[in-house]
Design a protein around this nucleic acid. Structure first.
Lengths: 193, 193
DNA sequence: TCTTTACTGAAATGAACGTTTCAAAAATAA
DNA sequence: TTATTTTTGAAACGTTCATTTCAGTAAAGA
């Protein structure tokens, strides 16, 4: 029987994510990935097929870590308002710990690659739809709980929150002031009350 | 006396802007620029020094066209609320006419290049400060006119609006529904009333 | 006309790009 | 131990990268 994959796939993806996140898709070379993963060039091609292949896996890996974090907040929070605040807390935390102004990998990929590669575009669209669905759900619950107003439909508020989060991430690239960010999050959420 | 520069610099910058906007900085090659500008490779180096050099000129060119548009709105509007709506109208118009999902060149550069090149980062920071100052001024006027509330300082609301605009631009990459966008703009502005 | 300077064109620079190849090493199950 | 299959390592693939070079052409003031 064959020799089995020896490297730690999660660890490799973690390291690859770091490079892509820091340098972007076009800015990252195969050599960068070889260096970051300590994997052989051939092993990368054997296991991921191509640069685009490993990048797609990296996007999924990155997305999954967020989905996990947000999922926890959703189940642990007492109401829709709590949930929203919890989600912004996650982003604030990430912004404050982003020491080299990388921003959000998915947003970066959206602006760099949406119009360059259909596979990446499809991922971004899918990610967007999932996020909007989640936000819509939260808003709907908040409106049922009479915590949020009904000036806009859940779908409309979801798009607003989605927009707010994207802007929040972009602002956070160059503004790491915690008070500013907390206040900003509150101002964004305020429309819903 | 010397022969003088013959090509139309504005036209060249316009064409170069289009390529950089479409492909990003790392995705654009010197050959792309030669093709787009119809300039000789040597002429580009003679006139702009380097790829980074022409890119910086492109950023300034792109920024200037926005500054001109926004300046017009500012002087032609009757009050702060009008001004804000006018600014969002500019972005809505650009989003609807962005047929190949390019997004905003400056935002794209922010996410792609802020952590890769100090010259570009400096430009982005300067641009950000100018925009915040403009927004702060508009908010201040709106508060003086009693159109906007004083729940937040002009600087705080400026950061909020700046964030909203960035999110707006990012959302507009994949969502070109005019009604959605108009409603979104109104929702963003609403906090100030 | 002559000198000065800049644009043009094409070729060449060396380095880096993503990807492929292949023989050797390693690991499992029979 | 042996057969099977994959991971390695290193070199090489052809292409493209940003940039330079340089001889030739063009334009304007002296």
């Amino acid at each position: 029987m064959p020799k089995v994959e020896t490297f730690n796939r999660q660890q490799v993806l973690h390291n690859a994510t770091e490079v892509f996140h820091k340098k972007g898709y076009n800015g990252t070379s195969m050599q960068d990935l070889v260096d970051a993963t300590s994997l052989n060039r051939s092993s990368i091609y054997n296991s991921f097929g191509s640069k685009l292949g490993i990048f797609m896996d990296v996007l999924s890996y990155y997305h999954a870590t967020y989905k996990r974090q947000i999922g926890k907040k959703v189940v642990s929070s007492h109401n829709a308002s709590d949930t929203l605040n919890g989600i912004f807390d996650i982003y604030i935390n990430d912004i404050l710990n982003d020491n080299d102004e990388k921003g959000c990998l998915i947003l970066n990929s959206k602006s760099e690659m949406t119009n360059q590669d259909l596979t990446i575009k499809a991922f971004i669209e899918e990610n967007q739809e999932q996020t909007l669905a989640l936000l819509e759900d939260i808003v709907y619950n908040g409106q049922m709980e009479k915590i949020f107003n009904k000036n806009q439909t859940p779908a409309q508020y979801a798009l607003y929150l989605f927009t707010g989060i994207q802007g929040f991430r972009m602002t956070g690239i160059l503004n790491k002031n915690q008070d500013d960010l907390k206040n900003l999050a509150q101002t964004i959420i305020k429309v819903l009350y």
